[in-house]
Amino acid sequence: MAADANGLAERVFTLLSAVPDPEIPVISLTDLGIIREVRPGSPAEVVITPTYSGCPASIAIQLSIRQALDAAGLADIQIRTELSPAWTTDWISEAGRQKLLAYGIAPPESAEARLKLKGDAPAICPQCGSARTQEISRYGSTPCKALWRCLDCAEPFDRFKCI
């Protein structure tokens, strides 16, 4: 039974690691860390958590999970949204951080890095790697990003906010 449950969880996570985030399609839902667990039972549940309370992508995310599960013959798995524990950018996978960087979005610092620095550190420019950067606005194109600019290469860029 336990082996079956592990098998199912592994299967669902593998499946959802191929489902892109609707707003930042370069990373997957598992990279983003919003797929919390697969809870065995009848029916089994996949537990997800929103990034921000009002994230407009929430409905699109549920739809794409549903589609992926249905297509894999897992139509009986239910999707449950749970708020606690609250999502944190620390749940973004290392692979996810690398993908964000390659896409031109400065990834959030890890929890350890934030502990060492008191307050907000400057973002590292994803184009040229410079730390001479400046925040333009704390709110960017989506709730999870802030708008920054690089003082060396002069490019504006998005930065994933640490929450």
Binding site: P50, Y52, S53, G54, C55, P56, L83, I136, S137, R138, Y139, G140, S141, P143, L147
Partner: peptide
């Protein structure tokens, strides 16, 4: 434009809280 985005984003956070 930046303030426009900021106010809308704050509104969106509040709307999500309202829904919960």
């Amino acid at each position: 434009l930046e303030v426009d985005l900021a106010l809308s984003n704050i509104g969106l956070d509040l709307l999500g809280q309202a829904q919960f």
